[in-house]
Design a protein around this nucleic acid. Structure first.
Lengths: 218, 218
DNA sequence: TTTAAAACAGACCGGTTGTCCTGTTTTGTC
DNA sequence: GACAAAACAGGACAACCGGTCTGTTTTAAA
């Protein structure tokens, strides 16, 4: 995939940053497709065109490599597909709708579903190691925080009322995570659309305040 | 944990069903706590007090063992904690609320969160093998179907209107799955309560039919 | 009692895994 | 150019994994 400088012996060019990036690229992709435990360092070395010595120089252990993938790549992926769109959108609800739709469309034209990078690793590694767990938990935290902040912005601008920011954020993240889990298992991104529609087609209006005004004609 | 008949050599008692059950017990627990790849057959054999020959007799491969765990144990767990309560509840919405609360309470007094057995294995194994994927997908399917059926019952009884059964089911399952994912990562079941409250505190009432009647005083 | 199949015991093996280690080359600095 | 540190090469290795194999014991049917 990436062009690797394989010159004939005698001439070597050190490129620590490029090599590190190549390793992270390969590791990120392999962890996403096969998971952490099913990805062997041998496979990663071969795919990245990197020797054992070089790999060990940049990432002393497999755990260190995974931690770097989580902190640099997974966090960036969440930032790109969720946090930035949320900040840029007109409202939190629009943002959620937009991301669901965008991801669904992207997955459909891609033809297969590998799942959410964060959730994939969260399931496999949260209980395996405390360092993994805290790194993953902090990504969930900033994700939720970004959505909650947006709701507060909406409320200050009068676009939203009576919505608990924390709970709305929790619901959004949970629904997306779970929908991606199902989409990965069924290999069908349609469930993302089902969820986002159920989410804003709203339900029975059974909040006490609403129930008084919103009664059904029957 | 389970009493295993370890008599002195010369006396042996064949107990194929008991042995099989012991292996499944141990495998289910280990897959839940450590995952599939991180669970070695050696560990399982030791924990179950079973020799290699016996294990191989009942489960020729590790994959066969995992498939049995999925089809017999994981499916049963979903049935027990979700499907049965849904059928027994007064309405689908009550059922969802009840399961979220019950699981949250159970996890809190338990002190730690191992996550949803189905989602744990779904993330790790869906892409690893087609047989795993279809087995897991069918559990998701019956889970969703049970909720959708309950919504239809509610509608026929006049307890519910204007709710798409499939979408509601998708949303319920997705929210639960994602909430359990977060709960596992943060080791805090509180997110389950956040989600279920956000789910029935309802949102902006922006469905076309509702928007006409249910306008906000501002 | 005979007998065949099922149930179980336990050693064995080839392959893989992650890590370490020793050496060599490149690179920046004085 | 000297030199030390960083960057990289590549083999070695011990532990482990999953699966297989042969043999023994139990069990139930005949």
């Amino acid at each position: 995939m990436t062009a690797r400088p394989k010159v004939r012996p005698g001439k070597r060019t050190n490129d620590p940053e490029g090599l590190r990036k190549r390793v992270l690229d390969v590791a990120e992709a392999s962890f996403q497709a096969r998971g952490y435990h099913a990805s062997s360092l041998g496979d990663l070395m071969a795919a990245a065109g990197v020797t054992g010595g070089a790999l060990h120089h940049h990432f002393p252990t497999k755990k260190a490599l995974a931690l770097a993938v989580i902190e640099e790549r997974v966090a960036a992926a969440v930032e790109e597909t969720w946090i930035a769109p949320v900040r840029a959108a007109g409202s939190a609800r629009e943002a959620v709708r937009g991301v669901f739709e965008a991801v669904a469309t992207e997955l459909e034209q891609q033809g297969f579903v590998r799942g959410c990078p964060l959730n994939n690793l969260a399931h496999e590694l949260s209980l395996a190691d405390p360092d993994f767990r805290t790194a993953l938990a902090s990504i969930f935290s900033v994700w939720r925080q970004a959505i909650a902040d947006k709701i507060r912005d909406d409320q200050q601008a009068g676009r939203e009322q009576g919505t608990d920011p924390q709970r709305f954020a929790a619901l959004s993240v949970a629904t997306y995570s779970g929908a991606m889990s199902m989409a990965k298992t069924t290999q069908d991104a349609g469930v993302l659309r089902d969820c986002v529609r159920a989410l804003d087609e709203r339900g029975p209006c059974n909040t006490a305040a609403v129930r008084q005004v919103c009664h059904s004609p029957d």
